[in-house]
Simulated scan of single mutants.
Amino acid sequence: MDGLYALKPWYARRLSGVRAALARRGVSPDALTAAGVGCAALAAAALAWLPAPLAALPVAVLLAARLAFANLDGALARDTGRTTRRGALLNELGDRAADLVVLAGFLALAAPWLVALAALAATLPSWVSLAGAAAGAPRLNGGPVGKTERCLLVVLAAATGWAVPVLAVLAAGSALTALVRLGRLWGELA
Rank of each mutant, 00 (worst) to 15 (best):
V145R: 04
G94N: 02
T123S: 10
R139D: 05
A97Q: 06
A55H: 07
L93D: 08
T83P: 02
N141Y: 15
L50Y: 09
L67A: 10
A70M: 14
R66W: 05
P125N: 00
A97I: 06
P51K: 08
L67F: 09
E92Q: 15
A77N: 05
L100W: 11
T123E: 06
E92T: 15
L124T: 14
A133V: 14
G74K: 02
P125F: 02
R66C: 11
T123H: 03
A108C: 08
L72D: 09
L140I: 13
P112A: 12
P51R: 07
L76I: 05
L130S: 03
A116D: 00
L124D: 07
R85H: 11
S129L: 02
P125H: 00
A133W: 15
A111C: 10
L114T: 12
F69G: 08
V61W: 10
T123F: 10
L107N: 03
A98S: 12
A75R: 14
N141D: 12
T80I: 06
L124V: 14
A97R: 09
D95P: 09
W113P: 03
A134Y: 13
L107P: 04
L54K: 05
A64M: 03
A52P: 13
A119V: 13
A118V: 05
L63W: 00
A55M: 04
T80S: 11
V128M: 00
A133R: 15
L63C: 01
L67I: 09
L103T: 01
L76W: 04
L57V: 13
R96W: 13
L67H: 10
D79N: 01
V102K: 02
R66N: 13
L54H: 11
L103D: 01
G94R: 02
A97E: 05
G105T: 07
W113V: 15
L120N: 06
L90E: 09
A108V: 07
D95E: 06
L117M: 10
A137M: 04
P51E: 08
L114G: 10
A131L: 15
S129P: 01
A135I: 14
R82N: 02
A56V: 08
A70R: 14
L50A: 04
V115H: 01
T123Q: 11
L117C: 08
D95H: 06
L103C: 01
P138L: 10
L93W: 12
A108M: 10
A108H: 08
P138C: 04
N91I: 11
V59D: 00
A64D: 02
G136L: 06
D79L: 07
L114N: 11
P138D: 07
L109C: 06
P53F: 11
R85Q: 12
L93R: 11
R85K: 09
V59Q: 00
L124E: 09
L107F: 07
L76H: 05
